[in-house]
Design a protein around this nucleic acid. Structure first.
Lengths: 223, 223
DNA sequence: ACATTATTGAACAGAGTGTTGAATATTACT
DNA sequence: AGTAATATTCAACACTCTGTTCAATAATGT
């Protein structure tokens, strides 16, 4: 019985992510269906009434599940939330390999060619795939704790990997503020993109991200 | 009886802010004492166990108040939270007058003289005064919704007022991302300062903020 | 077809909520 | 000081949601 300890699962979870290949063979179909229904219920209810107002009762009613089923998989509402968030953050962690290979030279080159970073395009593609969940969680009424987690897992590492070759030596307090500054800045861009409906294509966004990196206040905005 | 509608009060609230001059004559001492105790209880309990785990019972026990007293002033836990946050955001709104008078020229001049913006120093001073509350709310376990509110009320307006003279004309989508970028960036700096214990003086922070504004990635960090 | 196991439905105690009423204690004001 | 106003206390209340258990049922994987 009781398989709560499986709440944070290895990966994939059958939620039809890009990376979830043939997840059906790993888990009982019923579990997959229940979890998917709960995810959808959480997203829609969050958009409608805000995540704080949601009770386990609401989730089960919307998901058309018995309350006992919920507790078979998750400890409570926050456990469900964290499991879904963790899945996305884990998927995003896979971009870190490309991220580590980043150098300032590449950025400058691509900037001149006006071409986007290929892995950044992939990243925005992935964010779009998870758009429904991200829109709910990053919007008002969503989980305000998710933004900072996203920032720490993605933006901070991105900025560090770009800056470390330059400022690894003179590591004073200001460099930390430098990183916080740009990490928060890129989270702001991502959040705005998702909140406003992800109208720009992934390629456009990757270009905007590059443009913003090379901008300097007070100078005219270069195309 | 029952004076809940007074939950979000005109200002000051007797919480010994800089701006609360002689607030004692405006409200019954008992109310002031109760609200102050609840504020302190919320801050300490948030630091200890995280704001989500706090119940109205906990607050009243810590504040040494009857539960009925709580409900005399606030609708629920979130109402208390919002009242305290609103008070700070309202105080911060008073800086907007100085903010509107900002021009790029002033910034460039002060940058060369390595002198901080006077009203930015005042702003960091105020943030330090509210340090206990801000540290609790901006930290892990705090209210993750407060950061974005702070960003919208302060950082976004700050960035807009600086940029509008330059980019008011060519107002394409990119400018919005530009603002989101810098607004989030400055919230990141403020948050980091408060989280790490506000070691830098207000003058130092105002200088760091100025430095960050004129920085350009890829170039060596100018002092 | 069979063994496994996820789901259902009902029931339960427990905790926290939001409200009420009368009694008590503080307060502001003259 | 005395008094009217009112904030606080204390006990009690119905209510919602929680988290758990159990036996019965249904769906699934092999």
């Amino acid at each position: 019985m009781r398989s709560v300890e499986n709440g944070t699962l290895s990966k994939g979870d059958g939620l039809d992510t890009v990376l979830a290949f043939d997840a059906t063979s790993l888990q009982d179909r019923r579990i997959t269906r229940s979890k998917r229904a709960l995810r959808a219920a959480l997203v829609s209810l969050t958009e409608e009434q805000g995540i704080d107002a949601i009770t386990v009762n609401d989730l089960c009613e919307r998901a058309d599940l018995n309350r006992g089923t919920f507790y078979n998989h998750y400890k409570d509402k926050d456990d469900l939330l964290r499991a879904l968030e963790d899945e996305i953050l884990l998927d995003l962690a896979h971009f870190q390999d490309d991220l580590a290979r980043l150098s300032m030279m590449d950025l400058v080159k691509l900037r001149l060619l006006k071409k986007p970073l290929p892995f950044l395009v992939e990243l925005f593609d992935y964010l779009r795939e998870q758009g429904d969940f991200l829109h709910a969680m990053l919007g008002p009424g969503g989980d305000p704790g998710f933004g900072p987690r996203l920032k720490d897992c993605v933006c901070s590492k991105l900025v560090w990997s770009i800056l470390h070759e330059h400022y690894a030596t003179d590591h004073d307090a200001f460099v930390d503020y430098y990183v916080s500054f740009y990490a928060a800045a890129y989270l702001g861009v991502i959040t705005r993109w998702i909140e406003t409906g992800m109208h720009e294509s992934s390629e456009e966004m990757a270009l905007i991200a590059l443009r913003l990196f090379f901008i300097k206040p007070g100078e005219p905005i270069a195309m």
